[in-house]
Design a protein around this nucleic acid. Structure first.
Length: 278
DNA sequence: CTCAGTGTTCAGTG
DNA sequence: TCACTGAACACTGA
């Protein structure tokens, strides 16, 4: 479940079960795709016996700061998440359900056992996620080129507006671009444009001052709210497009009864409300 | 059997 | 060189 709020929740889960503890056991699936050809033995050698100092996140990437490098970097891809034995699993809107009763869960790629007995597992059913080791995650190419993270270093309004003015593409594509706003994914991009009242096809450099302010406020608020709710979808306000956008059915309507349209914009299925978004 | 999908990367284009 | 676009990747569940 992988946009910024879901990954941030994963960070908290990992923090609770692993921070300040020593990794006692590492159980790795021998998956050449997720582990990028690294063998379980190499992963274990780097992790077993290490103390976890801190769990860090930027955009949709997570990494563990250990008492000794290299450090593990985790990316959930389309379907990954962290689990602990009694942690209630957050249900995906679409996609696999993980039986909370079984441990380790189905599709577990790596499982850590800490020195106090706590466990953490990462699942990844569709194998677009990645786990790799890095001597310095901030210099890992995929993390180094990320843009601002709306939760960590949202720019000042003025510089946000200035950067919009330099972009010629449509806003949906720009919001999905991780080198612009790190951590924004498909549902957040649609939610932001919906709440800001701006059409996903609008070119970034055509926004007026009020529109870019609305965009800025919507992005800030939606991310902050979703993170505060631990990415628990059932607690998102009913006025959010989020609850009404799934399935791409013709009948789809917002809480107010407005018609939801679906289109391919920015390379992704986009849900939007033409009567409200200009 | 077919297809969509909460993501990233990379090749191709202008 | 840079901004932008579209296809490829993997595979489960509907």
């Amino acid at each position: 479940m992988p946009e910024l709020p879901e990954v941030e929740y994963g960070r908290k889960v990992a923090e609770k079960s692993c921070a300040k503890k020593v990794i006692q056991e590492v159980h790795c699936d021998n998956d050449s795709i997720v582990f990028e050809n690294k063998l379980p033995a190499e992963i274990k050698r780097a992790l077993v016996g290490r103390r976890v100092l801190e769990i860090c996140r930027r955009g949709k990437f997570l990494w563990f700061e250990l008492d000794k490098t290299p450090w593990p970097i985790f990316h959930f891809g389309m379907t990954g998440s962290f689990h602990t034995p009694d942690q209630p699993t957050i249900q995906l809107e679409s996609g696999p359900t993980v039986e909370s009763s079984q441990w380790p869960p189905r599709f577990t790629k790596i499982r850590l056992v800490m020195d106090d007995g706590c466990e953490l597992a990462m699942t990844n059913s569709r194998r677009l996620g990645r786990i790799r080791l890095s001597p310095n995650p901030l210099e890992d190419p995929s993390i180094a080129k990320l843009g601002f993270d709306p939760l960590i270093d949202m720019p000042a309004l003025e510089s946000f507006q200035e950067s919009l003015g330099k972009r010629k593409g449509n806003l949906k594509g720009l919001l999905l671009n991780q080198s612009f706003a790190a951590g924004v994914g498909n549902w957040i991009a649609d939610e932001v444009l919906f709440q800001a009242g701006i059409a996903p096809t609008r070119r970034a450099n055509t926004l007026g001052a009020e529109e870019s302010l609305n965009l800025y406020d919507a992005l800030t608020k939606i991310v902050k709210t979703a993170v505060e709710l631990d990415a628990d979808k059932s607690r998102f306000p009913n006025t959010w497009l989020f609850h009404h956008r799934w399935g791409q059915n013709q009948e789809a309507q917002t809480a107010e009864g407005e018609t939801i349209e679906f289109a391919q914009i920015g390379g992704r299925t986009t849900a939007w409300v033409p009567s409200r978004q200009r």
